[in-house]
Computed example of a mutant assay.
Amino acid sequence: MGRRIATVFGGSGFLGRHIVKRLAEKGYTVRVAVRDVESAMCVKPYGDPGQIILQACNIRKYDMVERSVQGADVVFNLVGLLSPWGKQSFGKVHVDGAANIAKACTKAGVANLIHLSAIGADVNAEAEYARTKGVGEAEVLKAYPNATILRPSVVFGPEDGFFNLFAGLMRFTPALPVIGAPLFPEVKFEKGELDINLYGDGGAKLQPVYVGDVAQAAVNAIDNDAAKGKIFELGGPEVMTFMGVMKRILKQTERKRFLVPVAIPFAKILGGIIGFLPNPILTRDQVTMLETDNVVSDGALTLKDLGVEPTLADVILPTYLARFKQLKKQSRHIERRI
């Protein structure tokens, strides 16, 4: 009996690389289906020669998807957008692409389909990202009822686009934003003293989850009858407010910055302007999502139901945010002398 075959759509991405590595370690032949094969060369060293196969595929094109899943025992759909660009719209990727993969898996008789969604996915959501994720889930389950749906909160790790983003901005700006602060400060008089609260509750609540935990949960879902047709919400062991995240970054980098309260209406205006840029750091749609908490729902199936104990952020963050620490004065004097 030969090796089992796994197809990973989006296998060269942040989460995809962790999943490909784990599949290779388990002895799978891994097809990494991506739009740009050259950019996916980084995953080749994860396996033995010939074990990891790069395959050009655009999930918007059904015939390409069909070829990619032929003979596969398990398929992972990890493709997603944070902001639309060119022909890559939320609808075409999150809905049409997801439906193509699910239909092709059913036709090919694939035993396992694991689909990556997001906490907050809802067909009635105001934010287009969350709404298309919700519609995509529905299309996947319609075409492949036994699919396992994974909904992570904000995913963090050495190459993430969240903690690294704000830590990087901090090197060039004197302040960090607290998005979701009240439009007007909350003013109270308590025991004869004036109390001015600029930040309200600190913005939306997030439940950052370690990328390694999400990858392990995805791999643990293979051949897991209890996971088929189920939706899992994946969050870390700690809930943080947006302000709490900014404070965590400052703590890990040993820097001091002002925390600037940014109300949702102002953030939407800013996101609407920046959103027209290529690879924007903030969009209006993302701000809309920050109007609601991004945490695991009460009663939801979680990481633990897939055999994974969630990792504390403070265990992982120091391993990659340390590079953003400010050089000590003594070190700078030594560098000048050298």
Rank of each mutant, 00 (worst) to 15 (best):
Q207P: 02
A204K: 02
V308S: 04
G2N: 06
L183R: 12
T132S: 08
D63M: 05
D48P: 00
G16D: 05
G136T: 12
D285H: 12
G157W: 13
Q252K: 07
R60A: 04
F166M: 13
K228L: 05
G91E: 15
F242E: 14
V262N: 02
V30M: 07
F156Q: 01
R151S: 00
L194K: 08
I53N: 06
G109L: 08
S153P: 07
V8Q: 12
G192T: 04
E137G: 09
I101Q: 09
L301G: 10
V296I: 13
L54V: 11
T173P: 00
K230V: 13
A104C: 02
D160Y: 09
I179T: 10
Q330P: 01
K256G: 10
P265N: 07
G97E: 04
E193L: 03
L270K: 02
V214Q: 07
A118E: 00
R3G: 07
E335N: 14
G299T: 13
C57V: 10
N146C: 07
S12E: 03
L169C: 13
L116A: 05
R31K: 14
A181I: 02
A181T: 02
I119D: 01
V74M: 11
G13R: 03
H18Q: 12
T241H: 09
L54M: 07
E66V: 00
C42K: 14
F156I: 04
Y28L: 05
A125G: 12
V219E: 09
A218V: 11
L306S: 11
L277G: 10
H18D: 09
V123N: 00
A175H: 14
V79C: 06
D48F: 02
G229N: 13
K87E: 15
L312P: 12
L317M: 09
Y320C: 04
G91I: 00
R337Y: 13
K247H: 08
I273Y: 08
A118G: 07
G307T: 01
V287S: 09
R284S: 07
R151N: 04
S117T: 14
L165K: 15
F184Q: 15
Y144L: 01
V65Y: 02
A322K: 15
E186I: 11
A147T: 01
F184G: 00
T283M: 12
P185M: 03
G271T: 06
A72N: 01
Y46H: 09
P261F: 04
G212Q: 13
P208G: 10
F166Q: 13
R4E: 03
V65F: 03
I273A: 12
K304D: 00
H94P: 11
G2K: 03
N100T: 04
T29K: 13
Y46F: 15
F172H: 14
